[in-house]
Nucleic acid binder design. Sequence first.
DNA 1: GTTGATGCAAACTATTTGCAGGCAG
DNA 2: CTGCCTGCAAATAGTTTGCATCAAC
Lengths: 166, 166
Amino acid sequence: MRKPKIERPEEQQRFENFLRSRQLKLTGERLELVEEVFGQPHHFDADQLHMALKQKSKAISRATVYRTLDLLVQCGLVRKSSLGDQHAHYEAVRSDEHHDHLICLNCDAIIEFYRPDLEALQDQICTEYAFRPMHHSHHIFGLCKACQGRATDDSVLAHRMSQLNT
Amino acid sequence: MRKPKIERPEEQQRFENFLRSRQLKLTGERLELVEEVFGQPHHFDADQLHMALKQKSKAISRATVYRTLDLLVQCGLVRKSSLGDQHAHYEAVRSDEHHDHLICLNCDAIIEFYRPDLEALQDQICTEYAFRPMHHSHHIFGLCKACQGRATDDSVLAHRMSQLNT
DNA sequence: GTTGATGCAAACTATTTGCAGGCAG
DNA sequence: CTGCCTGCAAATAGTTTGCATCAAC
């Protein structure tokens, strides 16, 4: 009883502190959104979030979804990225996750990996350039194991590559 | 005289071959565009290209600019990327350049670097995941040497980070 | 001639913003 | 109460597309 299993107050708490520090308000919509964001699979987009809430009869306007995602990114709870599509993708930043991505151009699989040696190399490069890193993005596009065997339509691949927003 | 300094027929040639291989036509507009692309500074966007041509009284419709850039990306002469802005950036792929970027969130400087050891590490990671890499993107955002000294507006930086399309 | 290319304008998509009324602090 | 928030709809921005005409092969 002393330490009840805390669901995910950590995120809520961080968001709350962030809002207070900026004299912003803790509204019901914002709480719903934080909760839903951390209930989503790793990668989602603004519309998926909007839909998910609508289905739970907790409709929140798209404008508010965007406005809140922006706040969440600013406070570091969410990461924004566009993995080649023309619209932004988001992902909740859980604990101390810090990973890069392998993205299959054929089946869209996203393989996440974390390599301390790669991180170290990056830091070294930054040091050499006297650059202070604050954020990084590392995506490798290609064919996953499964899709290397399968027949792939080269023209489709070529088109996908041309559409990459790297 | 034996080997006249070749301006940039290499790119033109590659594009020409690419077009022929797909039974596409080599039009005046397409040639103008290839030339202008390779005359642009490293990073440019569709509109800059469109404007540049307009000023040389060689106006080509935006639609054609986009359509041609798409072809150039497909044939590998141009790389597409969105370095945090909401619109795509492009860069001509010169010779064997292959680099990653350090991007300053304060002054927008783009520092390019190439590290064979980083490339090697990437290849090793792909091998471990049985992934066949075809393209990659690696961006590190932060503050360049000069901007670390300068006073920076934290709220502006926070906003810039939140707008990153990584 | 046949087939693809261009320009124009309209269509689209993702995202942002102005505004009037509503609610947290 | 004051000021930030919300939803709505209209506005943007970048990019794509349909169509009639035109040029490359």
